[in-house]
């Protein structure tokens, strides 16, 4: 999947349907609404922290993009609900996606 190729290179993209312009998350080749072809938007996307917790002093938080979809990301500084963040690092490690936000 092209999303994963980009992610593996450390680039976070937002998958969007060419036909109906809907964001398709989780990433897929076809839109789950109209089955149109999905392409990837690159950018410096902003997200908002919805909730967080921590394990061994490392915070993990649910962040929401474009009021549409959410991921769980690592954040190093103490997070706040509603705080705006951006992806600083992402990739695939041992088969798992990982995301870091600042």
């Amino acid at each position: 999947m092209s999303f994963e190729i980009k992610l593996n290179d450390g680039i976070f993209c937002i998958p969007e349907c060419n036909e109906c312009k809907k964001i398709v998350w989780p990433p897929a080749e076809f839109c789950n609404h109209c089955f149109g072809i999905v392409s990837l938007k690159e950018g410096d996307f902003e997200a908002k922290i919805i909730e967080f917790s921590s394990k061994n002093e490392q915070y993990f938080c649910i962040v929401e993009f474009e009021k549409t979809f959410r991921i769980i990301a690592t954040i190093f500084k103490t997070p706040n609900i509603g705080q705006s963040v951006k992806i600083s690092k992402c990739g695939i490690s041992n088969g798992n996606y990982f995301f870091v936000v600042i």
Partner: peptide, 11 residues
């Protein structure tokens, strides 16, 4: 995969 590296149910 939306859970990133936090896939264990404790998260």
């Amino acid at each position: 995969n939306s859970r990133g590296e936090y896939k264990h149910p404790i998260f």
